[in-house]
Each structure stands twice: as C-alpha cells, then as structure tokens.
Write a protein that binds this DNA or RNA. Structure first.
Lengths: 331, 331
DNA sequence: ATGAAAGCGCTAACAT
DNA sequence: ATGTTAGCGCTTTCAT
C-alpha cells in the first residue's frame, strides 16, 4: 500500500479554502482569520499533511540544506561539531549535509560550488586549503556562510578560538618546570593562513624568553603517523627540545607512540602539549595536556550565526570562543 | 554580481536543440545522435551548467538525499560510518544528511517519517529503540532502507556483524588466563532486540564452562558514566567478576575510570574487553582489548546495498561483516 | 532522432 | 481576508 502524498490542494479542499490560504497559515506571511486558521489546522492534522520541501525549495530558490564542509568527518572534533550543528538546526527544519574534503583544495572548491549551484540554505565550513577569494562567489550570491577557523577570510561570519590566554598558561606551565627549548609539530605548510597556532606560540615564546628556533619546527599532515615522524625528527636534532607542542591531539598521540618507541619519557624528558582536547585526550597515558577548543560551543555559535543571517543580518560578525588550557599529565 | 542560474533551456538555446534533448543527453535514457550530443556537451561546458537537483527531485518524486540515522553522530563509530558513507555516495550525486536521535524512539520515528514524506533517496539506520513494525511504512512506500544492526528487522537490507569467532577468541583468551567469573556491562534493557552481544556471550560462556550469572550483568546507557557506575556495581558484589565484557568501548573506558579509582588493577585483578574498537581503544592505558566492528567496512557495505536497491534490486539481502578479536593489554 | 508541452507542489504577486 | 494563477526547472509522454 503506497500512501499517496497529501498536498496543499488536498488540505485546501478539505478545509474549503484555497491553497494560498493553507500556505499562509503555515508561513504566517499574511493575516488569516482565526476561524479560517482553525479549520485549516484541523484539516492539516486530519490528513497529517507535511509540506513538500522540494517544491518549496524550487519555488523559493532556496533549499533547506546546510552543508558542513570539513577536512575529515571522522575526526572527533568535527564529528562533535556535526552533532551539535544538526541538533541546533533541526528545530528550524534545516538538514545538515556532511561533506568531507580530505583536506584537498579541489574538493573544497567543488563542494562550495555545489552549495551555490544547488542553492543551499547555508554553509558551515572549516577551510583547509581554501583562499579568501574562493568565497567570493558565495558572498556575491548572498549565500550565508559561517567559517570556523583560526584566521579570518575577509568579511564573512567567523567562529574563531581565542587561544591567547590558554597558550600563555601552557607556556607558564612549561616555563615553571624549567624547560627552555620548545618545539612544535605543526600542520602542513600550505594550509590556509599558515599555521596560526604556530605563529602564536612563536610570538608568546619570545615573551617568555624561550626559543622556538626553525630547526625545532617540523610539519606534516594532521595524522598519527605524521606526529610520530615529526617527533622522531625532533629527537634526532643535536639539541633536542624539552617541550613539544602539537598542531592537534592526533599528532600528539603519534608523538607519544614514537616517544614510547624511543624510550623517551613523557613528561620526564619531554613535555607534550596538544590542541583541541579531542575525546581521547583524557584517555591516553600519560593523559594529554592540551589546549581545548570547545567543539560543541563552536557548533552552537556557528548555528547561531547562520540563523541570524537567515533572518536577514547583513553585517559580518565574529564570535570568539575561549580556548582553555587543560593540564593533565603529559607536562 | 549575482550570477543567474543557467538552466537547461539556456543550454538548449545555445546548442540549438530542445531542452528535452539536453535532458536525454544527461540521462542517456534515449538515444541521441553523436553530433547532437557533442554540440550539447559543448554548450554545457561553455555555460558551466549543472542540473537543478531540486527541480529534478520535484519532477521525479525522489530526492538525492540519503538519511543516516544513528543514536549519536559524535560517537567515533558512527562518525566513521558517516564519513565512509558520504565518500561512497558522493560519486553518485547523493548527499548524506546526518540525523542524531539521542537513542530516543520518538526521534527515531519522526526521522523515519520525515524521510518518507520528503521522498528521500534512501535511509541508512542503526535503530536503537525502534521495532520491526516501525519500518513498515518505509517498505510499503518502496523506500530503500539499509539497517546496520546486530539483529534483523524483517525483510530489509541488513549489514550485520558476525562476532561468533571473535567472541570465541575472547573467551578462549579469558579462559586460558584462568578466569572463571565473567560479567557484562550491557546496554539498556529496552534497546531493540535486547542485547545480542550479551545473549551471544552468555551462550558461548556456557560452552566454555564459565558462568555469566544474572547478578553479574548490569545495564546502562552507552556512556562513560554508565560504564563507571556499572563497574562499581560489579565490584561491590559478594563474589566480584575476574573478567568484564562491555557493550561498547565507551562503557569500557568508564569502567577503567572506576577501576583506577577503586585501585582495581587491569588486567591483574580484572580483565576488560570492549566492543567496536573505537579510535581511542588503542590509546587508553592499558590499551583496550576489544571486539572490533569495522565501521568503514560497514559503511562501504551499506552504501553498496543502497546502490543496488536504487538500481532496482527487490529481494532483501544481508551482508555479514566479520568482527575481529583485537588483543591488547587489558586482558 | 528530436520536439512540444504538461505538470510535479508550492509561493507570492495580483486581484477582489 | 481570501482567491486565482503564473511559474520555479526539470522529466517524460505523446507527436512527428
């Protein structure tokens, strides 16, 4: 038994009104007499009518889909972001379409183009190798875009962490344990905006009278393997570091793998600090000290910005979410 | 500069053909003369035309959306499933809409209903509290559905783990280390299909001459907190267990928390075995021994089944993916 | 092998 | 306060 779809016309017929009235009852875009409204709502209930979102989208030229474009959905940080975003947008009848780019620029660009072509309601994106100009078509098309990133991409809504305090705390902690040679295993060089986490650390380190020399900065992808390789490289330096910051927690775990393999004690020989506070950070041993980026809060803020824009806000807005220094046992 | 959408009519005009021909060039549903085809393809290229999926959906009555309905997107297992599914379906122009239910039956039902109403292309779901009859409307409506679960829900495509060998291996391992009193921290009682992981363990344990008495089975949600509470409860029994199986890895980590708190040594005093092999299982200390359910393979199989059904397969099909005993240091 | 045209279900401009 | 109707862009039947 295939149930036929109930249309607005059916509801209108049942309620003895025109389909326009049904539409207006639903949207509230023009006044409807209370009695009429009641009759229509009864008919909707009776027939268990739900609007055809596809038809609506075709007519209005705007779909009910929000694209979430991230390097890797399986990364716990982005998974949490997806979960929160979906939860926040659900009540508005918006659906979250997840798109993993594998950190490839061509994928990122293709997905952006698709969002425009298909008239998505909006885009939430953590760009990885995109440049500012890649967003121009979206902005020109009036597409609501929220960027979740460390750096700005021009006049576009942004959710960005404020890690100044947290990074300072981390350095204080490292400094009080008499460590002087700090190092970083950063993300790839060609990632957009360079690596703000690195730049940031460099600037602050100087204030603390600590060095972050070039030979103590290594780069790689955001993977466990890259973390292991990076840590190995750092340890083979003539003067190896006594504190290693990592671009994210996945890298840090890779570094731990290597430390274990090399017999380097953490935190005895080397302090290790991650970024993100991924779900596993508190599970590894030693438990990972990290600079926490609150994924759920990022998700809520992104949803909020998106909603405001759907409601007509024009001026770009930036929301700062505070990163937090989480001291565990790897320092 | 808002770029106007390029329609099939535009392409048709540019190519000097009718829009029907453009459509047929795209779909291949009727023969087109090679020269005509060439002209049309050139025009498509020239104008960088892409079809309006919304209009297509309205016309065909089938959208290009696939709903992924799971208890919790942020759970690493489901996050990986989402990532794989999206990757597999991307090439077919299908989008994955993620839907988290929080394991609530009303949400699960609402989402299912919505998928039917909005004429989704298909549904991939890990039901948690749904019953077999909840799927009837979908099946009647001819909606392609793939269930990823431990148990069958009737004549519907199913991706299901085969954990017999792996569970046997786990018990062998437990048995050779002279453990006799096994316990389980299982999922909630009202989950659909009871708890197959528990039933399964119980049946096999008997064959191994080990007991799994009722007082050594505790239940809770799939959370770290529930795991801790469950472990605490088990340890307060008059005769506490010397091996504890957990419904999933998240529960197992909670159990570890509690063991640490109580000064119970793992695996010295108690062996601990999880389920899933979530990404963090190899990161906790002691590293978690677990029964691995390959999320990526589940995702690939689900995508495969869905595609077959979109291509017209009628008969329900079940794919078994082999679970695997992963021996680490918690046993 | 190709074209003409109806119509999917809705919204919103225009009428009353 | 409500109704009438065009048309969003596509697919597909019917004609040629």
């Amino acid at each position: 038994m295939v149930r036929e779809r109930v249309t607005m016309a059916d509801v209108a017929r049942a309620a003895g009104v025109s389909s326009a009235t049904v539409s207006y009852v639903l949207s509230g875009k023009r006044p409807v007499a209370p009695e009429t409204r009641a009759v229509v709502e009864a008919a909707i209930e009776e027939l268990s009518f739900t609007v055809n979102v596809t038809a609506r989208s075709l007519r209005t030229g705007r779909s009910s889909l929000v694209a979430l474009i991230v390097p890797d959905i399986a990364n716990p940080f982005f998974a949490q972001l997806a979960a929160t975003l979906q939860e926040q947008l659900r009540g508005l009848g918006l659906h979250v379409v997840v798109c993993g780019t594998g950190a490839r620029r061509d994928e990122e660009r293709a997905l952006l183009a698709e969002a425009v072509h298909q008239r998505f309601a909006g885009v939430v994106i953590t760009p990885f190798r995109l440049k500012q100009q890649d967003f121009k078509p979206l902005v020109d098309a009036g597409m609501p875009v929220v960027i979740s990133a460390d750096v700005s991409f021009g006049p576009i809504d942004l959710v960005t962490p404020d890690a100044r305090v947290a990074t300072r705390r981390a350095l204080e902690r490292v400094s009080t344990s008499q460590r002087r040679r700090i190092a970083m295993i950063a993300g790839p060089r060609d990632a957009t905006g360079g690596d703000p986490r690195l730049e940031h650390l460099r600037a602050l380190a100087m204030q603390f009278g600590m060095s972050l020399p070039h030979e103590l900065v290594v780069r790689g992808e955001h993977t466990r393997e890259a973390g292991a390789a990076g840590f190995g490289a750092l340890m083979s330096r003539r003067y190896p570091p006594d504190a290693v910051f990592c671009g994210n927690d996945v890298i840090a775990v890779g570094a731990m793998d290597k430390a274990h393999e090399l017999g380097v004690d953490i935190p005895g020989d080397v302090a290790l600090i991650g970024h993100d506070d991924a779900s596993f950070a508190s599970l590894v041993r030693p438990r990972l000290t990290t600079i926490r980026y609150p994924a759920a809060e990022v998700g809520r803020s992104a949803a909020q910005l998106l909603i405001e824009r759907l409601n007509g806000r024009q001026a770009p807005k930036t929301v700062h979410v505070m990163a937090e220094f989480v001291a565990r046992s790897s320092v």
